[in-house]
């Protein structure tokens, strides 16, 4: 626990993250290269879906990361509201664009996978629709960050929104399931049918690790940028105040 509290200090965070980043980036690059090699040259084409199964290797990690980043944002929001952790809202703010990007990737690759397999780019399937709503929530969170200027106040407001969204996500999933069974006979080819073969599972797992590491690297880098942005902001305000004071002293009215 002591080490966690130490990490809470932004200066320490900057130091440790600078040491950690090259290693994480390297590890991520290696696993991505190995994973893509296996996925493209070693893994066989699926007997049912043919070569389009190659899309799965980015589609599934993207879906997993989109959900993982939202969970992480929820934990950070708790950190902001309950423990007033100084890094929590930095983590929350910088996670949103990354999570949104992976949700977008998941939707785009899903569309390009769906066209040859289902015959259409988009179906209002429960999973696709839930991911779309998740993307909308991400965009709303990013929009709220942009409209509130003062970082600490914005952090608390967005934390509340994130928590409400987190409560809502299972409800949305449930209602979309209900809505979907109501409207659509289950004619869609289900992807969870065939069990996955080891020659595909390994590249998928390695790529999932690679993408996760890459997302973490991006998250750490943007957290560093955000910490510096706040420092710049604080320093600029202090400097402006100092200049104001000097001006007031130099030229008394």
């Amino acid at each position: 626990m002591a080490s966690l509290i130490d990490l809470a200090n932004p200066t320490r965070f900057m130091r440790y993250s600078a040491v950690l980043l090259p290693w994480l980036a390297g590890l991520s690059a290696v696993s991505l290269v190995v994973g893509f090699y296996l996925a493209w040259f070693v893994a066989p084409a699926d007997y049912q879906q043919g070569e389009t199964i190659r899309i799965m290797f980015v589609h599934v990690p993207a879906a997993w990361l989109a959900m993982m980043f939202y969970t992480m944002m929820t934990l950070s929001s708790l950190g902001t509201l309950v423990w007033r952790h100084p890094l929590a809202d930095v983590a929350q703010k910088t996670a949103a664009p990354i999570g949104a990007a992976f949700a977008l990737i998941c939707l785009l690759t899903g569309a390009f996978w769906g066209k040859p397999m289902w015959g259409t780019y988009w179906v209002w399937d429960a999973r696709l629709t839930s991911m779309l709503v998740l993307l909308l929530i991400y965009l709303g969170i990013m929009a709220l960050w942009r409209t509130l200027d003062e970082p600490s106040q914005a952090g608390r407001a967005v934390a509340i929104l994130t928590l409400v969204g987190f409560v809502n996500v299972p409800i949305i999933k449930f209602s979309v399931d209900w809505w979907n069974t109501l409207h659509q006979p289950a004619s869609v080819l289900r992807l969870d049918g065939p069990t996955i073969h080891a020659s595909m599972l390994w590249p998928l797992l390695i790529l999932a690790v690679g993408f996760t590491l890459m997302a973490l690297v991006l998250h750490l880098v943007s957290m560093r940028a955000e910490i510096m942005r706040r420092r710049v902001r604080t320093l600029t305000i202090l400097e402006a105040e100092r200049l104001d004071r000097l001006a007031a002293e130099g030229a008394p009215a």
């Binding site: 929530i137 709303g140 949305i172 209602s175």
Partner: peptide, 10 residues
């Protein structure tokens, strides 16, 4: 509306 709309889906 941007914030509220996704939450009103259910």
């Amino acid at each position: 509306p941007v914030l509220v709309a996704p939450l009103t889906v259910p």
